[in-house]
Amino acid sequence: MSILLDDKSAIVIQGITGKMGRFSARDLTAYGTRVVAGTAPGRGGLEVEGTPVFSSVAEAVAETGADSSLVYVPAPSALDAVLEALEAGIRLVVYPGDGLPVADAVEMRAAARARGAAFVGPNTPGLISPGKAKLGFMPSFCYRRGGIGVISRSGSLSYEVSHRLTQAGLGQSTVVGIGGDPVKGVNAAEAVAMFDADPETAAIVYLGEIGGGDEYDLARYAQGPGAKPVAALVVGLASPPGRKMGHAGALIGSRADSHAAKIAALRAASVAAAETVSELVPALRGLVGTG
């Protein structure tokens, strides 16, 4: 098991003829992911990296049985592409792009929920279930299969931490980048619930940052009965208040947004909370031993 994505997932890459689309067609396939189709409006009939290209997601689904989508289109076309995938019956849609208007993220999230599908993004590298499949552009060597479920608001930080976990012998069930924007498809609380229900996941690692309330949702979970062990990293202790640190969501606007307040709340909820990236693996080891 794993969450959202496994070796049975059949992938369609929307925008497969672009630079990132071609790269992922190669890279996902090399990882053993079942890439069954690509789309590019008006360019059906082509082949990219051995993958058949269709003009619409509906055609791709009908011809190949695709059930998961990775969307590489620029922000102005993203809402249309994600809605097209959902209406074609795709169950998992990843939009990695950043710079998406928040109103469009709100619509994507609502549309996915209305159909009982999952939308991951925006502003994310995607997700990977190590040893099974990847649906994004994270560097594959950072991951190995195991029992740690990882949730991250930041892409590059998730590579760094997954690499450390892998080197420490702590493999991962799924690593999901929920994205750095304030409004997310799958949010922290929802990802936690999925890992909680996943039998392969023994412990949860959460990579958070200043700003937003996701860390408090995590604390609520950890305090509940029967919660799986949780370790968390919060970055931004050196960030001054009132300044947006790259991510639209990474802003200390109130006391609850701060590094200190989040660490305190997580620790009060028995989460093994790391104040810097160096402390995370030791904190997790304290929970799960050597894995």
């Binding site: 998730s158 940052e209 990293l233 970055v235 202790l237 050196a238 991510h247 990236v277």
Partner: peptide
């Protein structure tokens, strides 16, 4: 590169006594 890694590096600099 990346907001989270940038903050993570800033935090290690701060913890090492730098700015």
């Amino acid at each position: 590169g990346g907001a989270g890694m940038t903050m993570a590096a800033m935090d290690l600099i701060a913890r090492a006594g730098g700015r």
